[in-house]
Design a protein around this nucleic acid. Structure first.
Length: 549
DNA sequence: TTGATGAAGTTTTTT
DNA sequence: ACTTCATCAA
């Protein structure tokens, strides 16, 4: 343990004065606003390090960090672990709002009575069944209700945590804020809310306007602002600044501070979306092959409906053997145990040099056995099955169909029950089948990219792929090169202030290169009734790009 | 069967 | 802004 005065940012990182001040604050709650790339997450990680290492958060008290997305919450946890080591980091609970609410519901469920009463083995989903099921949107109000109704629950939370972090606070909804108020208002607990009002993109889903001001007032929080942008090159910063001048003039910086030639911004205009997809795929291929950019450092962002806007691109990329991940379609399939099992099995079948996969596979298969004596026999019988499958796939050319068939035979032999036992989630009707279908579909996709099945399967868990997603999903992430696909008037149709904020989030993800595409005709995906329609480039948005070259 | 009209959906969040 | 689906009248 060290004294507060002796604490310095760890890993030799240099924080701007306001960030340093925020990291070391011991008296007041904080309302910290900062633009893209200012290091909000880093400030939280440093603050966690400060609180834990100086025992400002005294053992056994803990820090609660609340984010909106699972990967954001994992991200923060990982970073804190890197900064102050696993032991101290164990006292940081990093959860999404929903995970935090679910823990409260699970722990204090008996507090809920009458029509809200829940059985112990309740599930989440629709359609809603009394006592047995709740919906996503019930979780936070129910947690708030528990805290309102039970002093025991309130005290449990308040005694556990001495400090609370709130990430991406600009997108906090009224129900989420109500939960925070009930849990922490009027206690000595210090809250640190960080965010950027210019990046408020969840208004349509109920994000509170002016939530930062409310928070600052309710919790007597000290307002702090960070000014630097460590993420983007000067040319990109000038474009962001041009937008900031319109969105929040006070937060803009003098252009002189942003001088310099680094970074690039280009607008590409196409006759139709097919041309757009082909050219873009060629260009992305060149970035990866000629310029050596890692595929996962390239992101294609769309305003909405990637399967509509990026449909053609997702068809063109595999033709050029460019790996990509549609972040919208799969919720990290590679961590699903059933997917893991199938991929490990196929990897073992198509190659005899997969010891890791073999080990994992056998561990799962033998777990289905009853006792030690049976294990040997079981191992031998699975070995025979694998040999049979190897023989089968060796004879024919290995294609998607053959692998699919082998996988299905394997699953049939193993039995649904054994596979479903891999995760509690598979008790939910249809979930296991969904995971299996998605896994096989993903393997098909990978085989289109890679002819070698062993290579294709190893890519399953690899995340070296161009990322295709909505702007909303990209919040909090950064990439070397960002493509804003379909910057057209018709694409950004919502509330103009919100759409501009979304566009701002998109362009501010880029570290070095930003590309924007416009197609005059945008074809619908195969199967749709309409073929194409005339489009108009989004004059306002492209204006920000061109005034800053 | 066709055309007209209106409503709903589109961008997020969990073990 | 634009599509899709349901409903109703002709």
């Amino acid at each position: 343990m060290i004294k507060a005065e002796a604490w310095r940012p760890c890993d030799g990182l240099v924080l701007e004065p306001n960030a340093l001040r925020a990291a070391r604050e011991t008296q007041r709650s904080l309302a910290l606003t900062a633009g893209p790339g200012a290091g909000k997450t880093e400030m939280l990680a440093q603050r966690a390090d400060f609180l834990l290492r100086t025992a400002t958060c005294r053992y056994p008290q803990r820090i609660l960090a609340i984010s909106f997305k699972v990967d954001a919450s994992r991200n923060l946890k990982d970073r804190v672990r890197r900064r102050c080591g696993p032991e101290l980091a164990a006292r940081l609970d990093s959860h999404t709002f929903h995970a935090f609410a679910k823990r409260l519901i699970d722990r204090f469920r008996p507090v809920l009575t009458g029509t809200d009463a829940l059985d112990a083995d309740y599930t989440i989903g629709k359609p809603k069944v009394q006592r047995r099921q709740i919906e996503f949107e019930d979780m936070i109000p129910l947690a708030a209700q528990i805290l309102t109704g039970s002093e025991v629950a309130r005290n449990a939370v308040r005694q556990t945590y001495s400090h609370v972090f709130l990430d991406e606070f600009q997108d906090c909804t009224d129900t989420q804020y109500a939960l925070i108020r009930i849990a922490f208002l009027g206690t000595g607990i210090q809250l640190t809310a960080v965010g950027d009002t210019k990046q408020r993109i969840m208004g349509w889903a109920g994000a509170l306007e002016g939530v930062f001001q409310n928070f600052a007032q309710d919790f007597n929080a000290l307002p702090v602002n960070l000014y630097q942008n460590f993420r983007s090159q000067p040319r990109l910063r000038r474009m962001q600044n041009a937008m900031v001048k319109v969105m929040d003039p006070k937060a803009a910086v003098p252009d002189a501070e942003l001088a310099g030639p680094g970074g690039s911004i280009e607008v590409l205009e196409f006759d139709d979306s097919q041309q757009e997809a082909e050219d873009l795929a060629e260009m992305i291929g060149a970035w990866i092959d000629a310029e050596g950019i890692t595929p996962s450092e390239v992101a294609v962002l769309v305003s909405k409906q990637p399967e509509l806007y990026a449909d053609r691109l997702m068809a063109e990329l595999p033709k050029r053997a460019i790996p990509f991940r549609n972040e919208q379609s799969l919720q990290d399939l590679s961590t699903e145990p059933a997917a893991r099992l199938i991929v490990d099995f196929l990897a073992v079948v198509v190659s005899d040099r997969e010891p890791d996969a073999y080990g994992r596979l056998m561990a799962v298969l033998l777990a289905t056995g009853l006792d030690e004596d049976a294990a040997y026999e079981l191992r031998a019988s699975w070995h025979r099955f694998i040999d049979g499958a190897r023989e089968q796939t060796r004879q024919a050319d290995i294609d998607a169909g053959a692998l699919r068939k082998t996988a299905n035979e394997f699953l049939a032999l193993l039995g649904r029950e054994a596979v479903a036992a891999l995760s509690a989630d598979y008790e939910r009707g249809g979930r296991l089948e969904e995971v299996i279908a998605q896994t096989l579909e993903r393997i098909d996709e990978l085989l289109q990219i890679d002819d070698d099945p062993a290579q294709a399967l190893s890519r399953f868990s690899e995340d070296s792929a161009v990322r295709i997603m909505t702007i909303h999903k990209s919040k909090g992430l950064e990439f070397d090169t960002v493509v804003m696909l379909g910057v057209e008037r018709q694409t950004y149709w919502g509330d103009p202030t919100e759409e501009r904020a979304a566009y701002f989030v998109g362009v501010s993800r880029a570290k070095r290169h930003l590309w924007m595409t416009v197609a005059e005709r945008r074809e619908r995906p195969a199967g749709a009734r309409r073929w194409d329609e005339a489009r108009t480039a989004h004059a306002e948005f492209l204006g920000y790009a061109t005034t800053t070259a």
